[in-house]
Lab assay of single mutants.
Amino acid sequence: TTYKLIANGKTLKGETTTEAVDAETAERVFKEYAKKNGVDGEWTYDDATKTFTVTE
């Protein structure tokens, strides 16, 4: 399944996707990606669109 991340960070803005077996796995991947890019904010997830959003 393809999951999408929308990053609304102070230093990183944009979108990326990952293939994962479930939302929990995708969330781990995206949180690691955000951490590597210095983004720390509020996370939301929309199951209907398989989209995570992080906003600083």
Rank of each mutant, 00 (worst) to 15 (best):
T53E: 05
T2D: 04
T16S: 10
T53K: 06
E19M: 14
D22K: 03
K13Y: 12
A7H: 13
L12Q: 07
E15S: 09
D22I: 03
F52S: 00
E42S: 10
A7G: 05
G9N: 06
E15W: 14
T49V: 05
A34I: 07
F30L: 04
R28Y: 07
A48M: 11
A23G: 04
G38W: 04
Y3R: 01
V54P: 00
T16H: 14
V21A: 14
K50G: 04
T17W: 14
E27I: 08
G14P: 07
K50W: 05
T51Q: 03
T49P: 01
A20R: 02
K13W: 12
D46A: 04
T55A: 06
T11S: 11
T53V: 07
A7M: 15
W43Y: 02
N8V: 14
V29G: 04
T55V: 09
T25A: 13
V54I: 10
T49D: 04
T2H: 08
T1F: 14
E42C: 12
G9D: 04
E56V: 10
L5R: 00
V54F: 13
T16E: 05
G38P: 01
G14L: 15
G9C: 15
E56H: 07
K4H: 13
G14W: 15
E42Q: 13
T51K: 03
F52G: 00
A20Q: 08
T49Q: 06
V54C: 06
T49A: 06
K13E: 07
A23H: 10
A26P: 00
E27L: 15
K4C: 06
A48V: 12
L5F: 09
K35E: 09
G14N: 09
N8Q: 11
V21S: 12
K31N: 04
A20P: 02
T2C: 13
L12N: 06
D22Y: 03
V54E: 00
Y33L: 08
E56L: 08
E15R: 08
Y33A: 03
G38A: 05
D22L: 04
A20M: 03
A26V: 02
K50I: 02
G14C: 15
T1K: 11
K10E: 09
A48K: 12
D22V: 03
D40H: 13
V39P: 02
N8R: 12
T18Y: 12
N37H: 15
F30W: 02
K4P: 01
L12A: 06
D22P: 01
G9T: 15
T51D: 00
A20G: 03
F52Q: 00
Y33S: 02
Y3N: 01
G9W: 07
A34N: 02
D46S: 06
A26S: 02
E15H: 09
T18P: 02
K13D: 06
K31P: 00
T1N: 13
T51W: 02
K50S: 04
T53S: 06
E32K: 07
Y33Q: 03
A23W: 15
E24N: 09
T44R: 08
E56Q: 09
A23I: 10
K10Q: 11
K10N: 11
T53A: 05
G9L: 14
T55P: 01
D40Q: 13
Y33E: 03
K10R: 13
E42A: 11
A20K: 02
A7T: 15
A48Q: 11
T55R: 07
T51V: 06
A23V: 13
E32I: 09
T17D: 05
D40W: 14
